[in-house]
């Protein structure tokens, strides 16, 4: 059970008319890890999260959260009992005060922890008597986190949690997420802020045009992934590098650029055998992201 993924999808697809928001997405999210869900705007991150929460139905494919089928309304209810969701716009009921919203939310979760509520209320310096619509976006994010954390969820799903926050609030948010993970909660958060993901994620899932283009442990990415640039001196056509370990290759003029996840030595040896000069450089998340999602020229 401990090794079972908390989230898994198989061929998950969502079309809006002719637009394919998510296309054949198969992914897993491991327990007790922080998983960053990266992609450009419109890549399909929010649609995927909304399918996991039962807000939109998949056009095709299947998905399970904590073993429950996301497409079944009754099971979706069980999912929502056991997870917490913090949306991109932190849309909370503006007509309630902070205290009223806490009281309202608490009523839905029998395992609500008043001690956590009290601690976070104090730590986040939330004004209990103030209307939610009158507090800043940073405060609303903190309130949304309090509502999520005080019920001790098994997973927290966050959609662009740092959107619209100032640097101090972002820092506090990232620290909170690390503390939550240390407490045993699995975290799945979407973002296009690479530096945030690089700071706290254990695993990175990258999505582009609705399809998964990378699923790697961040440590693996930094230790094993390499950029390989191969330059050809002659006039013969630059060959394709369809080799094991090549995640993405791009040819520009006499140069081939590759992102390799493994077999770096084999790829370099192959390039040298073709009479080319190969240069290997380490990869950071930003390089990998740009390599994987940037439009081909």
């Amino acid at each position: 059970m401990a090794h079972q993924p908390v989230i898994e999808t198989h061929g998950l697809t969502r079309h809006y008319g002719n637009v394919q928001a998510v296309h054949g997405l198969s992914l897993t999210v491991a327990r007790r890890q922080i998983t960053g869900f990266l992609g450009r705007n419109g890549a399909g991150k929010s649609s995927t999260i909304k399918m996991l929460l039962g807000m939109i139905r998949p056009t095709a494919g299947t998905g399970r959260v904590l073993g429950y089928d996301i497409a079944d309304p009754a099971q979706s209810l069980q999912i929502r009992r056991r997870i917490a969701y913090v949306g991109e716009d932190k849309g909370l009921y503006g007509y309630m005060t902070v205290a009223e919203l806490i009281r309202f939310t608490r009523a839905f979760y029998p395992d609500w922890r008043p001690d956590i509520e009290a601690r976070l209320l104090q730590a986040y310096q939330l004004p209990p008597g103030r209307k939610v619509k009158a507090i800043s976006k940073g405060m609303r994010t903190k309130l949304a986190l309090l509502l999520a954390l005080a019920r001790r969820p098994e997973i927290i799903i966050l959609d662009e949690p740092s959107e619209g926050l100032d640097p101090v609030s972002i820092e506090e948010l990232l620290q909170t997420l690390q503390e939550v993970r240390a407490g045993g909660t699995s975290i799945f958060f979407s973002s296009h802020q690479l530096s945030e993901v690089e700071r706290i994620a254990d695993r990175v899932l990258m999505i582009d045009r609705g399809q998964l283009v990378m699923d790697a442990l961040l440590s693996d990415l930094l230790n094993n992934y390499r950029n390989i640039t191969v330059e050809f001196a002659g006039q013969e056509p630059v060959p394709a590098f369809d080799l094991a370990g090549v995640e993405r290759s791009r040819i520009q003029g006499r140069q081939a650029r590759m992102l390799a996840s493994a077999n770096v030595e084999g790829i370099v040896a192959h390039a040298r055998a073709l009479g080319a000069v190969a240069q290997v450089t380490p990869v950071n998340l930003r390089d990998a992201f740009l390599d994987l999602v940037r439009e081909a020229p």
Binding site: P73, L77, A84, Y93
Partner: peptide
């Protein structure tokens, strides 16, 4: 339109 549908629909209650 008010941006609160996500919060409402994430509550453990049926539509």
């Amino acid at each position: 339109a008010q941006g609160t549908a996500g919060f409402t629909l994430s509550l453990p209650v049926s539509r």
